[in-house]
Amino acid sequence: TEIRININGVTIHVRDASEELKKLIEHLLRLGADEKEIREVLHRWEK
């Protein structure tokens, strides 16, 4: 699944996002995570 996240005008594009990762990101956004925090989570997730 491919997702695009727009945070304050900055688009983060994620290829091959699992449903689990998608739910995690949606949850973090609801909690008010910023772009830097989302990128950090994505970076750690890929490892």
Rank of each mutant, 00 (worst) to 15 (best):
A17W: 08
H13E: 08
E40R: 05
D16H: 13
L42D: 00
N8Y: 03
N8P: 02
G32F: 03
A33T: 10
E2L: 07
L31R: 15
S18A: 07
L42F: 03
H27E: 13
V41F: 15
R39F: 06
R39N: 05
V10Q: 08
V41D: 00
I38P: 00
L31C: 08
A17D: 04
G9S: 04
K36F: 10
I5A: 01
E20H: 06
I3Q: 02
E20L: 08
I7N: 02
N6R: 08
K23P: 02
R39V: 08
V41N: 04
R44A: 15
I5W: 03
D34Q: 09
E46R: 03
H27V: 11
R15M: 13
E46I: 14
T11W: 07
L24E: 15
I3F: 13
D34I: 05
I12D: 01
R39W: 05
D16C: 13
T1P: 05
A17P: 11
R44Y: 14
T1F: 13
K23G: 11
E40D: 09
I12P: 00
H13P: 06
H43F: 07
W45K: 00
E37G: 07
T1L: 14
H13R: 06
L29A: 06
K22R: 11
L21S: 01
L31K: 12
S18L: 04
L42T: 01
S18Q: 06
I3G: 02
D34A: 07
E37Q: 08
E20C: 06
A17R: 02
E37A: 10
E19K: 08
E37R: 11
R30V: 12
E35W: 06
R15V: 12
I3Y: 14
D34M: 06
G32W: 02
A33F: 05
D34R: 05
E46A: 05
E26K: 13
N6I: 11
W45Y: 08
N8H: 08
L29G: 03
A17C: 08
K47I: 15
G32D: 05
A17K: 02
I12H: 03
L29D: 02
L21D: 01
E37Y: 13
G32M: 03
R15Y: 12
T1M: 11
H27I: 13
V10F: 06
D34Y: 04
T11F: 10
E26M: 13
E26S: 10
I7F: 12
I5K: 00
G32I: 01
H43M: 12
G9W: 02
I7Q: 02
V41A: 14
H27W: 11
I7L: 10
H13K: 09
E35Q: 07
R39H: 09
R44V: 10
E37T: 14
R39C: 08
V41Y: 04
R30H: 13
S18H: 05
T1V: 14
I3V: 06
R30A: 14
L28G: 01
L28P: 00
K47V: 15
E20G: 07
E19R: 10
S18R: 04
T1K: 07
E19W: 14
I38K: 00
D34L: 10
E35P: 06
E40P: 00
I25E: 00
I12C: 01
L24A: 10
I38G: 00
E26H: 11
E20M: 06
E2M: 07
V41Q: 08
E20S: 08
S18E: 05
E20P: 06
L24G: 02
R44P: 01
I5R: 00
A17E: 04
V41G: 02
E40V: 05
E40N: 07
A33M: 03
I5S: 00
E26F: 14
E37H: 10
L28A: 14
N6K: 10
A17M: 05
E37F: 14
I25T: 01
E2V: 09
E2I: 08
V10T: 12
N8Q: 07
D16G: 10
G32S: 05
H43C: 05
L42V: 14
R44Q: 13
I5D: 01
H27M: 09
E20K: 09
L42N: 00
S18V: 06
H13C: 09
S18D: 13
E35R: 02
I3D: 03
R15N: 10
D16I: 06
I5G: 01
L42Q: 00
E19P: 14
A17I: 07
L28M: 14
E35D: 09
N6T: 13
E37K: 13
L29F: 09
L31M: 15
H43S: 12
E40Q: 05
E46V: 06
D16L: 04
T11G: 04
V14D: 01
E35L: 08
T1E: 11
E19I: 11
V41H: 06
I3L: 15
G32Q: 05
N8I: 03
S18N: 10
H43D: 15
V10E: 09
I12T: 02
R4E: 13
E20I: 05
H13M: 10
L29S: 04
A17V: 08
W45N: 01
L31Q: 11
A17F: 06
N8D: 08
H27P: 01
I5V: 09
G9K: 03
E35T: 05
K23N: 12
R30I: 12
E35F: 10
L21P: 00
K22D: 03
H13G: 05
T11Q: 09
V10R: 02
A17S: 05
E37V: 13
I25K: 00
H27L: 12
I38R: 00
R4C: 12
W45D: 02
S18T: 13
I25D: 00
R39S: 04
V14S: 01
I7E: 02
K23M: 14
I3R: 00
E26D: 12
L42I: 15
A33G: 03
G9L: 03
E19S: 12
T1A: 09
I12M: 04
E20Q: 09
N6Q: 13
I25G: 00
I12L: 08
I7C: 06
T11K: 06
G9D: 06
T11E: 10
L42Y: 02
K47W: 15
R15I: 09
L28E: 03
E2Q: 08
R4F: 14
I5H: 01
E2S: 11
N6M: 09
E2T: 11
K47L: 15
T1N: 11
H13Y: 11
E20Y: 07
I3H: 06
R39Q: 07
R44I: 11
E35N: 03
K23L: 14
R4G: 05
L28N: 03
I38C: 02
L31Y: 11
V41R: 03
I3M: 08
K23E: 10
L21R: 00
W45G: 00
E40H: 05
E37C: 10
L31F: 10
L28C: 08
